[in-house]
């Protein structure tokens, strides 16, 4: 294993809630420019694993080494419903540190690109609470990529996408992959298996190659 090329190294992650062991000795690595998928049934522990990877949950044991910036798209909709699309973009851009004077031109460029790519222009001033479910999901995803991170960690990212957004999502993913960025996608099902470099299956808390 060439650790220099690895952007993510996960070693021996174990997580239990009381006596219920959700994750058992999970280990895997991801290289730069790699697109990996994790599939599993409901309650298999996929979201728990992702929450551990991004720091929302603490594992009982194990080690994670992330070499770069990450973006995280949660399964549930975590956006400000009483703000509009543009304001959500700005709020998260501030959190990523993109709205400093130094990076403002880069942020404008990124923002315009995403607005165009995912067709947000017509919704810029619309309150999120007034958007359709699919558009909210698109915003949920877009907020995780505002800073064009080195690795994207996505939990059921395309559930609720319409066909055009689904195609745009894969188009964006390919662009990022070609630039050496990595993507880890968790889903109940993986369609378009040929798009993935690796697919893992999480079953009974054990991660195995699918």
């Amino acid at each position: 294993m060439d650790s220099k090329k690895n952007i993510l190294e996960v070693e021996g992650i174990q997580k239990a809630y009381g006596k219920n062991e959700v994750l058992k000795d999970i280990s895997f690595t991801m290289q730069r420019g790699e697109l990996a998928g994790i599939v599993g049934e409901n309650g298999a522990g996929k979201s728990t694993l992702l929450k551990i990877l991004v720091g929302l949950l603490k594992p009982n044991s194990g080690r994670i080494h992330l070499d770069g910036t990450f973006g995280y798209c949660p399964q549930e909709l975590l956006v400000f419903e009483t703000l509009n699309v543009q304001e959500n973009f700005l709020y998260f851009a501030n959190a990523y540190g993109l709205y400093s004077k130094k990076d403002r031109s880069l942020w404008k460029e990124n923002s315009n690109y995403l607005m165009k790519k995912f067709k947000f222009h017509q919704y810029e001033e619309v309150l999120v609470s007034n958007l359709s479910g699919g558009t909210k999901q698109k915003l949920n995803f877009s907020l995780s990529i505002l800073h064009f991170p080195d690795i994207l960690i996505l939990d059921e990212p395309y559930s609720g996408f319409d066909w055009e957004t689904y195609l745009n999502f894969w188009d964006f993913s390919k662009e990022q992959k070609d630039k050496g960025k990595s993507l880890l996608i968790v889903s109940h099902f993986v369609y378009d298996k040929q798009k993935f470099d690796k697919i893992y299956k999480l079953k009974n808390g054990v991660l195995e190659c699918a």
Binding site: V54, G55, L56, Y72, P74, E76, L78, V79, F80, Y91, F92, N94, A95, Y96, G97, L143
Partner: peptide, 14 residues
């Protein structure tokens, strides 16, 4: 209100 969204902002850098 928005407790979980605020947590998301914190993992984003705040």
């Amino acid at each position: 209100k928005n407790f979980d969204v605020n947590r998301r902002l914190i993992i984003c850098g705040f």
